[in-house]
């Protein structure tokens, strides 16, 4: 139990996927202009990440390892992720057509969110069990969501600021992300090892 709690603290704060590991930057920069889309993206990614983290663990231990097919891991994981994303897309389309329209191209793009594949591969690398994989994926997703929503809030404000012309848009957003990353350095050492 303590170990699972430590994994959660570690993935949400100490090794935040966006601000410390720099994974999943495409949706972080791409969908954070408005708080509503950022929240929708965060929820969709949370769902996909948690589910694909658990499923890719099952595929790895139940299918790839017994058959000696570990060299197919990357392709198999991408297939799992694409399947989960397709499923999420169908759910969002039915549940909230408006959100589906707002997210647009970004929803299928979760497939190429490197954080999702990163979580699946890191689970294997750190030989996590099923429950650990699930918590790791969920923690990564919560960390992604929190940072994404806070970032969207800041960006909405910066959009109204008197930013020098060469730095408007993506440039000031990247500087903001850098400053947020600096702030997250403060969590270093919270979880030992």
């Amino acid at each position: 139990m303590t170990e699972l709690a430590l994994i959660l603290v570690s993935t949400v704060l100490v090794n935040n996927f966006v601000l410390v590991k720099f994974l999943g930057l495409c949706p972080f920069m791409g969908v954070s202009r408005k708080l509503e889309t950022a929240t929708g993206m965060a929820l969709a990614t949370t769902f996909v990440l948690t589910l694909s983290s658990a499923l890719s663990y099952l595929v790895n231990t139940a299918l790839l390892a017994p058959l000696g097919l570990e060299y197919l891991r990357t392709i198999a994981f991408i297939l799992v992720i694409a399947g989960v994303v397709q499923f999420t897309e169908m759910v969002v389309r039915q549940a909230s057509p408006l959100l589906y329209q707002v997210l647009g191209i970004y929803l299928p793009l979760i497939t190429t969110n490197c954080a999702v594949l990163g979580v699946a591969l890191l689970n294997v690398q750190e030989s996590h069990g099923f429950l650990e994989s699930l918590v790791y994926g969920f923690g990564a997703a919560v960390g992604f969501s929190v940072v994404m929503i806070l970032f969207a809030g800041i960006r909405e404000r910066v959009a109204a600021a008197d930013v020098p012309v060469p730095f408007q848009g993506a440039a000031i957003a990247l500087i903001t992300a850098g400053l947020m990353s600096l702030a997250f350095m403060g969590f270093a050492g919270l979880v030992k090892g």
């Binding site: 708080l35 970032f151 800041i154 404000r157 947020m180 702030a183 403060g186 969590f187 050492g189």
Partner: peptide
């Protein structure tokens, strides 16, 4: 939290920056 369990002896600067991040959301 940072003083008690983190890697830095004082966490004030980090705490201020972290809460700065949350300000637009708090205001909302």
């Amino acid at each position: 939290v940072i003083r008690s369990w983190g890697g830095y002896p004082d966490g004030v600067a980090f705490a201020v920056l972290l809460m700065n991040m949350a300000v637009p959301t708090i205001d909302r």
